[in-house]
């Protein structure tokens, strides 16, 4: 075989790679992502009508959304929707719940300690690490410039 450099071959692969219909993906992400947020709006409106404080409305909404994400993941429906919606199902907090439930469920055979509980944060753990770390840094910055 004649020699191909990695660069040459990389270009060859790029030229032959299938072109994705990005527009369709974006449309799906927009509509499903938007729809999930509307569900969130409905829930928060419900809590607001009951006279809850802003903070409690936010917490209550998160809790319900997470519950729904976990339930639909367990029922095997969330990944079916995600196949079309992509980021529309990954980015909302329901996707965060999906990222926690799916490995936990998958690794049940490896036991409830290191299987379910250990694998739970495989995908979602980094979100907490980076989210909490940057929020502490942001708090310190805010303290300094206040």
């Amino acid at each position: 075989m004649k020699k191909y450099t990695k660069k040459e071959y990389g270009k060859m692969v790029e030229r032959s790679a299938p072109k994705t219909s990005m527009f369709q993906n974006l449309l799906w992400a927009f509509f499903i992502g938007g729809a999930i947020c509307v569900v969130g709006q409905l829930i928060s409106q419900y809590f607001r009508n009951r006279g809850w404080s802003i903070e409690n409305v936010a917490s209550g909404t998160s809790i319900i959304m997470v519950f729904l994400g976990a339930l639909f993941t367990g029922l095997g429906l969330y990944d079916k929707l995600a196949k079309f919606a992509g980021a529309g199902t990954i980015v909302p907090i329901t996707g965060f719940a999906n990222a926690i439930v799916s490995p936990a469920m998958e690794f049940k055979r490896e036991g409830y300690i290191l299987g379910v509980a250990g694998k739970m944060f495989v995908v979602a753990g980094p979100v907490l690490v980076y989210g909490i770390t940057t929020s502490v840094i942001a708090g310190v910055i805010y303290y300094l410039i206040r």
Binding site: E55, A58, S59, G60, S62, I63, V66, F67, A70, L71, T73, G74, L75, G76, I93, F96, A97, I100, V101, A104, M105, K108, Y112, V116, A117, M120, A124, L128, G131, I132, S135, V136, A138, G139, V140, Y142, Y143
Partner: peptide, 28 residues
């Protein structure tokens, strides 16, 4: 407050994710 504030405000969501995540994994 830089240390306590963030997690306090999101405690509900984090606890829910852990609880419902665990329950869903056990049930399904």
């Amino acid at each position: 407050g830089a240390f306590t504030g963030g997690v306090t405000a999101t405690a509900g969501g984090i606890a829910a994710v852990i609880l419902f995540g665990y329950l869903a994994a056990v049930a399904f």
